[in-house]
């Protein structure tokens, strides 16, 4: 009789373990699927705190700029196009603040989205830009940073991490405080 009882208990325990295991596996699979579908849109998005993707682009003078060369210094990465009016509006302010902060280890890289040399050059001449302007001919940097609206500015701190992502036009005060925030200590 004792034997029978313990046998029954064992059976019951095994059944509970089996059922719990099957249900857990299935619920975990569903949870994982839902998690994936909810986050599907923003897995590729760049987030604050991420490593800023390294890239190499050529400026109007033919000089190469590689992001990782600026490790230890702040990089103010501004994506723009000549057709984008707010981009044009914030350029002079960026140029003025660059004059102030370039001595303190903050670089400005203005990344144009796949326009012709002529358009970019005449724009740079018109606004008298003193920071390097690079052209992302194949839009590959744009897609690496998942840039959608223009202008978008990505602040890269001296550790090479994304400090902040700003979409839309910035005032001169904004630009001043952003540059101050990525100034090396």
């Amino acid at each position: 009789m004792n034997d029978k009882n313990s046998n029954k208990k064992n059976k019951k325990r095994n059944r509970a373990i089996m059922r719990s295991a099957i249900l857990l596996v299935l619920i975990a699979a569903i949870g994982y699927t839902i998690y994936n579908s909810v986050t599907a849109e923003d897995v590729s998005l760049l987030k604050v705190g991420d490593e800023a993707p390294d890239f190499v682009l050529v400026d109007l003078e033919g000089e190469q700029h590689r992001l990782s060369d600026y490790q230890g210094e702040g990089v103010f990465l501004n994506f723009w196009g000549t057709w984008c009016k707010p981009c044009a509006k914030e350029m002079p302010a960026m140029d003025r603040q660059y004059e102030v902060y370039k001595e303190q280890g903050v670089h400005v890289l203005a990344v144009n989205i796949a326009q012709s040399d002529f358009e970019v050059q005449s724009f740079a001449d018109q606004y008298g830009l003193s920071f390097p302007v690079v052209i992302d001919k194949s839009k590959s940097v744009m897609s690496a940073y998942n840039i959608n609206p223009l202008p978008t500015t990505v602040l890269v701190n001296p550790e090479g991490k994304v400090e902040k992502i700003i979409t839309g036009e910035m005032t001169e005060q904004d630009i001043e405080s952003y540059m101050a925030s990525i100034k090396p200590e």
Binding site: I22, I27, A29, T33, I34, S37, V38
Partner: peptide, 22 residues
């Protein structure tokens, strides 16, 4: 097809298929 409750329902259908069959 990407809404969480629809996926959850399909998942429940899968559980039901497995459990009822077993």
């Amino acid at each position: 097809y990407s809404s969480f409750w629809f996926i959850a329902l399909v998942g429940m259908l899968a559980i039901s298929l497995i459990v009822a069959s077993l």
